[in-house]
Design a binder for these strands. Structure first.
Lengths: 160, 160
DNA sequence: TATTGTTATACTCTATAACTATA
DNA sequence: TATAGTTATAGAGTATAACAATA
């Protein structure tokens, strides 16, 4: 399931001297971080593949989702919500603005802030991306089993 | 728990025009990938902090763990086991070799392969790193609760 | 003084492609 | 021809620091 896992090293067709049955993970086998990382990489790769038509990364998707759900919020608020650096958000917004999906309006209350909005085009892309992301999520449910998927989501949401 | 989550945006001390109670995650709130990513980032940050004395990244740790558990394995085997690119492994091993933790020996069976080994110093660092990683894992258990930690580990291991 | 958005820097990670030497 | 290790490149992500405008 995790990337590369299915592809076991060939081990030499003639069974090398060592004849290692299979590579051991050592103590990694008891490390939650290792498996969380593997699952995260797998999920992101699947997500990127599913949304390739829209050319939207998971990070870009999360940005337009949160702007769509909270129109007018500031960059600092958005960055804090997603847990990314303000500096990184600047470049993400540059790209999204170049593509005509988002816009930064002057805040009427605070001259330092930008009020973030989706354009009409941004809303359309968000709608389509949400549809594709739902297919991705359904694929996950099939792969993990609906019960495990729900348990995982509930457990992880409680931690955030 | 996830990075930045604890730090809610200030929202303006005088409660801005919008008076947004709290920022909504929109559909992200039902996305497993979003929460898996947040947890993974949090775990890695904690891991890096705990092992800062040894200056070992999660990736470097995983490399010396697997070499230690499978001495003599090849780079292709190691890369496939960890799900990373062979090209990236080359640079990881350069760094570890510079620090005197690992070595690449000629394989006696196949002139193309390197047999990877830990040096004496590498074994010492691995032992100490494993000790610190165990503290990191115990911290996780406290934070998630031992029961949830065990369930998560079991579920994720089954997927890998 | 503190905050918002911005620029700049450096390092890591990811994804490729191409090269060499061995098989 | 195929594989193992290597080099090179480009694009993201991460972590900082510093700056101008505004509060």
């Amino acid at each position: 399931m995790a990337p590369g896992t299915a592809v076991r090293p060939t081990e030499g067709k003639r069974a090398g001297k060592r004849a290692a049955a299979s590579i051991s993970l050592g103590v990694l086998d008891d490390r939650l971080g290792y498996f969380v990382r593997r699952l995260q990489v797998w999920i992101f790769q699947d997500f990127i593949r599913r949304l390739s038509r829209l050319d939207l990364s998971p990070a870009q998707f999360s940005v337009i989702v949160v702007i769509g759900a909270n129109p007018g919020l500031s960059q600092a608020q958005l960055a804090a919500t997603l847990g990314i650096e303000r500096a990184r958000l600047v470049r993400l917004l540059h790209r999204l603005e170049q593509r005509g999906l988002t816009e930064r309006l002057r805040s009427s209350v605070d001259g330092r802030r930008h009020a973030l909005e989706l354009t009409r085009g941004g809303e359309k892309v968000l709608a389509e991306a949400t549809r594709l992301a739902e297919q991705h999520e359904n694929g996950l449910k099939e792969k993990l089993g609906a019960k495990r998927h729900a348990m995982l989501l509930e457990m992880l949401r409680a931690l955030a």
